[in-house]
Amino acid sequence: MSKKIISILMSLIVAASLIGCKTAEVNVEKKAETKTEDKVDSSDENLEGKWAKNYTLEETQKLYKEKLSKMESITKELGVKYEKDEKIKKEKEEPINDNYIYFDNNKPETNKIESLYFGMKTYGEKLETGDISLQVSLKFDRESAIKNNDFDLGKTSVKKYIEAFTEQEDIDYTDINKQIISKLKDGESQVKINNTIDGLKEEIIATKDCIIYKLSTKKYKFADGEMSMK
C-alpha cells in the first residue's frame, strides 16, 4: 500500500488529528512532503545519549552514511526492492535537501512493513540545521490483536531497522506492546506513544489498520558546531 507515512508524521509534528493510514504518504519520490519546523523542537534540549550530542554537518553526514549502508543491507536481505534518491525543495522559502531511501509494499501481510523511509534532511541556504529519521508503516489488525491479546513489535521486521539505527540489540518492547493493546482495549481509536532511545526520539501511532513508527534525531544546529562547508 503506497502513500503511507509523511502525512501522519506531519500530524505528529503539529499535533493535529490523525485522519488514517490510508491518507498517509511515504512515497517520497512522488510526494516528498514533510512539515518544516520554524524552530528547533524544545524537547530536543532535554534529550540524553549518543544522538543528543552537538554534531557538525560532516559528523552527521558520516553517521547517516554508516546507517544508510545498514538500512540498505537489511532491505536487500528481506528481498525488498527500494529506491534511493535526493531531492531539493523549498518550504516557506527555505531550501530543504532530502537524501533518502524508501520502499512501498502494496500487499503486505499483517504485521509486515507496508512502507519505509530512511533519510537525512538539511535545511537552509547554508545547511544550517539537519536531522536523520527512520519512518515505517506496519500493517496492523487491531481486532485480532485485542482478541488474542497479542502484538509484539520486537517480532516484526521493524526491529531490524531499529537495531541498525540505535546499535542496540537488547531493546525491550514489552511496555510498548502492553500500552498499545491496553489502550486499544480501553476504546482509544488512536494510540500515541513517545519515548527516547539513546538521544533519539521515538514516536508510535497505532490505529485500526496500521502502526506508524518513527525514530529521529534532534534537529542539529550545524552553525553552532563550527562546521566546515567544504
Results as ranks from 00 to 15, higher is better:
M1W: 03
K3E: 03
I6N: 12
S7Y: 15
M10L: 11
S11E: 15
S11Y: 11
I19M: 10
G20S: 01
C21G: 14
K22P: 05
K22S: 15
A24N: 11
E29M: 10
E29P: 00
E29S: 10
K30N: 07
K30G: 04
K30Y: 10
T34R: 09
D38Y: 13
K39L: 06
D41Y: 08
D41I: 03
S43R: 11
E45T: 05
E45P: 01
K53M: 14
K53I: 13
T60Y: 02
Q61I: 10
Q61C: 03
K65I: 07
K65L: 14
L68F: 10
L68Q: 06
L68H: 09
S69H: 11
K70Q: 12
I74F: 06
T75P: 05
E77K: 12
E77C: 02
G79K: 00
V80Y: 04
K81Y: 12
K81N: 12
K81R: 13
E83A: 09
E83P: 05
E86W: 03
K87C: 02
E91N: 11
K92P: 08
E94H: 05
N99I: 09
Y100R: 00
I101P: 00
F103E: 04
F103K: 01
L116K: 04
L116W: 07
F118H: 04
M120L: 12
E125Q: 08
G130V: 08
I132R: 02
S133L: 14
L134I: 10
L134F: 09
Q135K: 15
V136G: 02
L138K: 03
K139C: 01
E143M: 13
E143C: 06
A145W: 06
I146W: 03
N148R: 13
N148P: 08
D150M: 14
D152H: 15
G154V: 07
S157H: 06
Y161I: 10
I162L: 14
E163V: 03
A164E: 07
F165N: 00
T166C: 08
D170P: 02
I171W: 05
D172C: 07
N177I: 02
K178E: 15
Q179W: 10
I181A: 09
K183R: 08
K183G: 00
K185S: 04
D186W: 12
D186S: 12
E188Q: 05
E188G: 00
S189A: 14
Q190T: 14
N195Q: 05
G199F: 01
E202I: 07
I204R: 07
I204S: 02
I204W: 03
I204C: 04
I205Q: 05
I212Q: 13
L215T: 00
T217P: 09
K218E: 04
K219A: 04
Y220A: 01
K221E: 13
K221H: 06
F222C: 05
G225D: 14
M227E: 15
